[in-house]
């Protein structure tokens, strides 16, 4: 849809009893210590929240009520009322909290502590925690859609940890490429995909068999991966591209040139758009996931990371 049409649709929605919001990106800016909220219909920043502690990881709850932002240097997680655009509280975390994910029911969050080989489960309401040992330098975190398993990319072990969410026990590890960082799981909960920073590829992991079934070559220094339209989209930091692969064929499709040092990719909830943060050039770019073309650019704060599921769905 063209921007004008989107704006008109938004206006029409606003004539109802409650002004509905477009999809939004919650972009954690590590260098400027804040969070930019970008209206994705207009591709314009609509709010900036002060965060502190060099924020990097982001996870937005499926229902759009909360966003969680990790600050590895500050050693805390900020709990944000995503609708009100306000920081509600900070949860202290030892080590270096980086990767974060929210359970599908929104009741727990999972935080990887980079320096302590731990995955921490937190109930953000009661602030009760449990933790489990995982591998070295745990980075990206994702949950299966049924919420049964938490998958962690153990960067310096070149492996994934599979943690049973109910018992909170590590039930398996799976070898992947070198230095897995970002991780995403498909909607069926069958496959996990990791972006492997040092081997310049994506590992495809069969979650039932608990083994890597393919590796797909991508650009230089891939940091994160997202899925849409039966394809994978990978942010290649040094190549300054988004590599696209076919998920069924597990083979490369094309590469899209983006801004400087792309870090994090995420998908709109309708699967039509891909969003990528560009760390060096301080921008969020949108890409049409079907046409594989850059659509628009928005300015963020300094050093946008937004590592994780940083899109808040329209309500």
């Amino acid at each position: 849809m063209k921007h004008g049409a989107r704006a008109a649709l938004l206006l029409a929605l606003c004539l109802g009893l409650r002004c509905a919001r477009a999809d939004e990106a919650f972009v954690a800016n590590q260098s400027s210590d804040d969070l930019t909220i970008v209206d994705l219909a207009a591709m314009k920043p609509v709010a900036t929240l002060s965060i502190g502690g060099k924020p990097a990881g982001v996870a937005v709850a499926r229902d759009g009520s909360r966003a969680y932002v990790t600050s590895p240097d500050g050693k805390f997680v900020s709990v944000i009322d995503a609708r009100e655009r306000k920081v509600i509280k900070r949860l202290s975390i030892s080590g270096g909290p980086l990767g974060v994910a929210v359970a599908p029911d929104g009741k727990h969050i999972y935080v990887a502590e980079l320096f302590r080989r731990r995955l921490v489960e937190i109930d953000p309401e009661s602030e009760k925690t449990r933790d489990v040992e995982v591998g070295a330098m745990p980075s990206g975190v994702a949950l299966t859609p049924d919420g049964r398993f938490v998958i962690v990319a153990d960067r310096d072990d070149n492996a994934l940890s599979i943690v049973d969410a109910a018992s909170f026990v590590r039930v398996a590890t799976v070898s992947v490429g070198r230095h897995p960082f970002g991780i995403v799981i498909d909607a069926q909960g069958q496959r996990a995909y990791t972006a492997n920073v040092e081997s310049d590829d994506v590992s495809v992991v069969d979650l039932a068999a608990r083994k890597t079934i393919a590796s797909i070559p991508v650009g230089k220094r891939p940091y994160s991966v997202a899925l849409a339209q039966g394809r994978g989209f990978v942010a290649d930091q040094y190549s300054e591209s988004v590599s696209v692969f076919d998920a069924a064929a597990m083979a490369p499709v094309s590469r899209i040139k983006v801004g400087e040092y792309p870090e994090s990719v995420a998908t709109s909830r309708d699967g039509n758009m891909i969003y990528v943060t560009n760390w060096f050039s301080n921008e969020l770019w949108s890409i049409d996931a079907k046409a594989l073309k850059v659509v628009a650019k928005a300015t963020t704060g300094d050093g946008p990371r937004a590592f994780g599921a940083f899109i808040r769905a329209a309500d």
Binding site: Q30, S31, K54, P72, D73, G96, F280, D302, G303
Partner: peptide, 9 residues
């Protein structure tokens, strides 16, 4: 071989 959490610019 490893590095910390915060890339500097």
């Amino acid at each position: 071989a490893a590095h910390g959490t915060t890339p500097l610019k």
